[in-house]
């Protein structure tokens, strides 16, 4: 029988890991893909993208995904919705305002981030209520 002992659960571990991943992203360390959004490059880690988005899961899950270094996302009015989503993936914080919510909603729909889509819908509904 194993000796009796304790499990020590570090309650902030997940947020500490995510915070370090965000710092790695901001410093360009081990980032392995460039997202081109309306011509603007956004560097990221495929592992984080695939963990957060059904769209990226579809793109990167197979062997073909290993060779993808640059990925173009739709430009146009929705483009400014992608950067807040990337920040959300790395921080768990989603910045929304009445001006940006429709673009974030469109981008989240494209990236198949259902829970964010629902949050955007709730925010937009609330902001239209008197």
């Amino acid at each position: 029988k194993g000796a009796l002992g304790y499990v020590r659960e570090f309650t902030r571990h997940s947020s500490d890991v995510l915070g370090n991943l965000n710092e790695l992203r901001l410093r360009g360390i081990l980032t392995d893909v460039t997202l081109l959004v309306g011509g603007q490059p956004l560097r990221a880690h495929k592992a984080v993208l695939i963990a957060c988005s059904g769209f990226f899961y579809s793109i990167f899950r197979g062997r073909a995904g290993v060779g993808v270094d640059v990925l173009s996302l739709p430009g146009g009015p929705e483009a400014r919705g992608f950067a807040p989503l990337l920040d959300f993936m790395y921080t768990s914080r989603l910045r929304l305002s009445p001006a940006t919510a429709p673009a974030v909603l469109a981008a989240a729909t494209y990236l198949q981030m259902e829970h964010v889509v629902q949050a955007c819908h709730r925010f937009i509904q609330t902001s239209y209520e008197p």
Partner: peptide, 22 residues
């Protein structure tokens, strides 16, 4: 878990902090 009698919560930082870029 075999041999485990309790779970103790650790509220402090769990890993090193990557220095922020200046």
């Amino acid at each position: 878990h075999e041999g485990v009698v309790a779970t103790v919560k650790e509220a402090g930082r769990s890993i090193h902090e990557i220095p922020r870029e200046e």
